[in-house]
């Protein structure tokens, strides 16, 4: 009962201010060692994002990643709902990154039942620098939500990237309020799971499906409009599903770039999670 009351409160409560950006050490971020470069950096940087809900086993996750050449070739991978299990020295992000010969930054976010600490991570084939974390504004009694930022060192060039995972059952106004502090006013990439379900929520519990059917207002499209006002271009159109649960297909995830041309985009319909991974290629030389 208490859990349901908290879920309800998440949809109708106050919004705090979150925290300023904090450096990795003070925010408890796990950082990996420098990666071994396998090729000289080019102008094209492929960034992918995947909420790996339900894919707890690193070997299973690697097998699913390998099923998509587009994702397996990603230079940078944003992960949401990756975890650290009790009794394990390293996070699953670290285990995956080690297998893929990548470096990583992993921030713990939310303690689940059984002692599993859920988190977000950035995995990269290139070195990560200036890793920072910001706790985003919390809506009501919802979960703590974080933005994880880093500079990806592509040769002499730096590309600022931000990985986010937003609250689930909140109104669009609160979603923008939660995201806005992580949206940088500089050349950058922002991506992750924005949880843009198409509906409004009644008391944070019941989706207002009938009104959405009549009006056709999609939170994903509204988010794109907001990001465009911040000069960010998106990779995935609002009517493309990144959530796999039929018949509730919806675009929950996206990647956005500001002042960096997007050369190609895609979505990989592979299993394992209830989200599909998405990717885009950006031209870091331009």
């Amino acid at each position: 009962m208490r859990r349901w009351l908290l879920v309800a409160a998440a949809g109708c409560g106050s919004v705090d201010d979150g925290t300023p950006w904090q450096d990795a050490a003070s925010a408890g971020v796990e950082l990996g060692p420098l990666p071994t470069l396998r090729a000289a950096p080019g102008c094209t940087l492929r960034i992918a994002s995947w909420n790996v809900h339900g894919l707890s086993d690193p070997d299973d996750l690697v097998a699913h990643l390998a099923a998509s050449q587009q994702i397996a070739n990603a230079d940078v991978l944003f992960l949401q709902e990756t975890a650290q299990y009790p009794g394990e020295d390293q996070t699953r992000s670290a285990q995956l990154a080690t297998t893929l010969a990548m470096t990583w930054a992993h921030v713990p976010v939310h303690l689940l039942r059984g002692g599993v600490m859920q988190g977000n991570a950035i995995l990269s084939r290139f070195a990560l620098d200036d890793v920072e974390v910001k706790r985003l504004p919390t809506v009501g009694h919802g979960q703590a939500r974080f933005a994880l930022a880093a500079d990806v060192m592509v040769g002499e060039r730096r590309v600022r990237v931000v990985d986010v995972h937003l609250e689930v059952r909140i109104q669009m106004t609160d979603r923008i309020r939660q995201l806005d502090p992580a949206v940088l006013e500089e050349r950058a990439v922002i991506g992750g799971d924005f949880n843009t379900a198409p509906w409004q929520w009644v008391e944070g519990i019941v989706p207002l499906t009938s009104t959405e059917a009549v009006v056709g207002q999609n939170q994903a499209a509204v988010l794109d409009d907001y990001m465009a006002s911040r000069e960010f271009a998106g990779a995935i159109a609002p009517d493309v599903d990144t959530f796999t649960l039929a018949p509730f297909g919806m675009r929950l995830d996206n990647l956005y770039a500001r002042d960096i041309p997007i050369a190609a985009t895609g979505i990989e319909r592979i299993g394992g999670s209830d989200h599909y991974p998405i990717w885009f290629d950006i031209d870091v030389c331009n």
Binding site: M172, V214, Q217, D225, Y226
Partner: peptide, 26 residues
């Protein structure tokens, strides 16, 4: 018939929010 209007207020500077109206049936 159902007629509905939705307005998403902007909580931030530099973005005007979003409004949409629609009609349908049930």
């Amino acid at each position: 018939a159902i007629f509905a209007h939705s307005h998403i207020a902007s909580p931030v500077m530099g973005w005007g929010g979003a409004s949409d109206s629609g009609g349908g049936g049930f």
